[in-house]
Design a binder for these strands. Structure first.
Length: 503
RNA sequence: GGGGCAGUAGGGUAGCCAGGUAUCCUCGUGGCUUUGGGAGCCAUGGACCCCAGUUCAAAUCUGGGCUGCCCCA
């Protein structure tokens, strides 16, 4: 009856430990592979990954074509774009030998694919009719991280990098694409019920080679923000480096204008961390590998009937299977847990794995022609007549999505602290308060664009500047507030900027 | 980037200071009894991160490597 060693986890008090335990117990990732910063996907975790990426794919496929470029990039290509390579140089894995023969040209394992893709863009793009060109791929990329690696978050092999690359006839069209990408990512994270802020990264923190970078950040339970998506306007810099030109209607040769944008398995880390609780994972129904688990309650403690146990067992199983078939037919990912464990053990197992809804069927239910449904998000229990199972389950799954989305948003926005005046942080006390707020959330202040002021704030508050708040319109949660003010350091003209401790 | 700690069965641990017999829990397997919130009993299986050094003898001491974790910047 009493749990002995398998105690509940504590998400709030010790997020780090909670996170590692969850990955293991819910069978998402096995961290025992003997190479630093690379991990093994368990089947259950892999299924979760694929369901999440199915959503992403279907969003991408509307306007992009999926492709696949090679993992290996010759050194010359990788080194072509100066700014770009400066940003990655120290993180590149090199293949320098074939067998025992030293390679003439060292090959890089892609840290990202610009330099693999753009030489091909040069060949593919000839006329204005080839534009806009929008492609994407979902691949693994490699970075020699020297800092502390963390499953799904800081990896040496990113296994699930969705990167999109687009080429356009002019800058206006490229900028339009940036906006579309932002809208697309919004939809994606809304489906995952992950809240976010969108910012324009400061000059000193943009993607190497980009004109500007836009990023989505979410808030982790330990109060640090995590970047979960980035979108870059590349302009003509790569086009000039890789000589990607097209012939315009008037016969003139012009450089293309480019964008690129990406999402990695950090989005999975976000789903796990934002929604999970002390019982384990809590998956949005859209991406749950198992949406409904059916648990049979074979005997009641006193309910063996006179004809012997067999008949009771069979009745319960029959009803379970009937429910299972119905749900399956309705396109719901259901699982009938007919294993030998006792019911309680099954409850704990499937709660850990984040299954949104559990259906229990016992002798009493069979007798009354019903089953019992228990929600993962609030553990509420309801009795459902067998004839209404499918519609009730569908409705409840939708409700669960809305509830966990709402809960996640409330927590998120409760942890954004907005200042209005440039007086903010002027005195010791004020600075202290901001610092406290920044310790477990996001702080919104006014800053001019200079790196000096940015760094001063970073040092004083122990934070990173995420960037200028943008694309706020249309989000009911970002209640008003001035968008322009005076820099809290130098009091020059400034914009609203988010700062936080970041991953 | 700087500092600290650790690695013992599938998982979690005791033992290490002070060298000699590896502890407990969980887990796996077989069996019987059980089943409305982590079942019980019996039997059984399984480990000292790697390389070198010191030593009659190394999980234990020394050096190096690999891997993991924590704190600070």
């Amino acid at each position: 009856m009493q749990p002995k060693t398998k105690t509940l986890l504590q998400k709030e008090n010790n997020f780090s430990e909670w996170y590692n335990e969850i990955l293991k117990r819910a069978e998402i990732l096995d961290v025992r592979y003997p190479v630093k910063g690379v991990y093994v996907w368990y089947p259950y975790g892999y299924k979760l990954r694929n369901l999440i990426y199915t959503i992403l794919r279907s969003l991408m496929d509307k306007e992009h074509k999926e492709t696949l470029f090679p993992l290996l990039i010759p050194k010359e290509e990788l080194m072509k774009e100066r700014e770009h390579i400066k940003g990655f140089e120290e993180e590149v894995f090199w293949v320098t030998k074939g067998g025992s023969t030293e390679l003439d040209i060292p090959l890089a394992l892609r840290p990202t694919s610009e330099t693999a893709i753009y030489p091909v863009f040069k060949v593919w793009i000839r006329s204005h009719r080839d534009l806009p060109l929008r492609i994407y791929q979902i691949v693994n990329t490699f970075r020699y991280e020297t800092r502390h690696t963390r499953p799904l978050i800081r990896l040496r092999e990113i296994t699930s990098f969705k990167e999109a690359h687009t080429a356009h006839a002019d800058r206006a069209d490229a900028e339009e694409q940036v906006k579309k990408a932002v809208a697309l990512y919004k939809k994606f994270f809304d489906e995952l019920a992950i809240p976010y802020v969108i910012t324009k990264r400061p000059e000193w923190d943009k993607f190497p080679g980009a004109e500007y970078s836009i990023a989505f950040d979410t808030l982790m339970p330990d109060g640090k923000t995590m970047q979960i998506a980035t979108i870059h306007l590349l302009g003509e810099s790569f086009a000039r480096t890789f000589d990607i030109q097209y012939e315009d209607k008037d016969g003139s040769l012009k450089y293309v204008n480019q964008t690129c944008y990406g999402i990695s398995e950090r989005c999975i880390a976000a789903v796990i961390s934002v929604h999970g609780d002390d019982h384990g994972l809590m998956l949005p129904p859209e991406v749950a590998p198992i949406q409904v688990v059916i648990v049979p309650i074979i005997y009641s403690s006193k309910g063996k009937n006179a004809e012997g146990e067999e008949s009771g067992v069979k009745e319960v199983e029959k009803v379970c299977l009937a429910v299972y078939e119905k749900l399956k037919k309705a396109g719901i990912r259901a699982f009938f847990d007919n294993s030998v464990d006792r019911p309680g053990a099954k409850y704990y197992r499937w709660e850990m794995k984040g299954v949104p809804l559990r259906i229990e069927v016992g002798p009493r239910d069979v007798r009354d022609n019903r089953c019992e449904c228990v929600r993962r998000d609030d553990f509420s229990r309801m009795r459902v007549p067998l004839s209404e199972v499918v519609s009730k389950v569908k409705g409840t799954l939708n409700e669960i999505h809305d509830c966990i989305a709402k809960r996640a948003k409330e927590i998120f926005f409760a942890n954004i602290y907005k200042t209005e005046g440039y007086e903010a942080g002027k005195g010791e006390e004020e600075m202290k308060e901001l610092s406290t707020k920044a310790a477990h959330g996001i702080v919104s202040i006014f800053l001019c664009g200079s790196q000096r002021c940015g760094q001063e704030v970073e040092e004083h508050l122990g934070v990173s500047v995420l960037g200028e708040a943008i694309y706020d319109d249309g989000n009911e949660n970002r209640e008003g507030g001035k968008s322009e003010g005076k820099c809290m350091i130098c009091s020059r003209k400034a914009k609203r900027v988010y700062v936080a401790r970041a991953y």
